[in-house]
Amino acid sequence: MMPTKIFKKQEKFAPAEVMLDLHDLKKVYPTPKGDYVVLEHLDLQVKKEEFVTIIGHSGCGKTTMLSMIAGLNPISDGGISVLGTSIKGPGPDRGVIFQSPSLMPWMTALENVKLGVRKVFPHATKKQKEDICKYYLNKVGLDGSFNKKASELSQGMQQRVGIARAFAIKPKVLLLDEPFGMLDSLTRGELQDVLIEIWNKEKITAVMITHDVDEAIFLADRVIMMTSGPSAKIGDILSIDFERPRTRKAVIGHDDYYKYRKYLIDFLEH
C-alpha cells in the first residue's frame, strides 16, 4: 500500500496565494458531425512560485489547455485568470516556450531574445535591454553565441535561446509546451538542468506539459494528471515533496521517487 500522505487531491488555495486560476474551463470545436468537446469542467489553481507539470495521453487536450492559457486559443466557456484578472488574448505576462524553438532563423540569438524585451521594457536604454538579454543568454549557457544566427544553432541550443527569450520578458506565468520533446535524452537532461537552475533563481510560476514521467517528477511541485479526451479534465494530482533546490541524483536516489513514478505510470496505463 502507498503511504497516502504524499498524495493530495485538488484543494482550494487562499486567493492571495493563487497565481493562475482555471475555473470550469471548457473547449469545444464545432465539427460537421456536431460539437467535439475537448475539455470540460476543468478546474485548476496554481500557486505563486509553483512549478506544475501536466501529463496525460496524446490528444487529451493538454496543448489545447496550455494555448488557452497563453491566449492563443479562444475559451469556449469558463475562465482563466492571472492574479485574479481574467486574461484577454495573449500577453507578455504569460511567457511561452514552444515545443519547437520557434526562433526567427534570420535573427541572431541576441536579436531573438531582444524581440520580446524591447516590448516589455520600453523605457530601458539600449544598453540595459542588451544587458538583460545577455544576462539570460549567459544563464542558459550561450555566452559564446550571442551573434550566431538562430539557423546555425543546434536544436538544443535553439531551445536554450527559447528559454532565455521566455525568462527575459519577466512573465508572471511561464507556459512550457513539451519544450524538450524533440530533443535526444542527453540534451533533454542538460536542458532540464538549465531550466531548473534558472527557475530556482526566478521562481516564476510555471505550467509545463510533458510526456516524460521522470521529467514531470524532477521538475514539479505537483504533477497534474489529465484524463483522456473527449471531455478531458483533471484526473488526479500528485504532490512531489522533494526539497528544492533539487539535483537529479538526489531525486532519483530518494525513497519516494519510485512510488511517485509508479503512481504516475499506473495512472497513465489505467
Binding site: 491566449g71 495573449p90 500577453g91 507578455p92 511567457g95 519547437s100 520557434s102
Partner: peptide
C-alpha cells in the same frame, strides 16, 4: 508565414508594424 512565428509575435505582443 510559419504559424509558430505568428504565435511568438502574439505572445510577445509585437505591434503591427514590428
Amino acid at each position: 508565414v510559419d504559424k509558430d512565428f505568428i504565435n511568438v509575435a502574439k505572445v510577445l505582443k509585437l505591434g503591427p508594424l514590428q
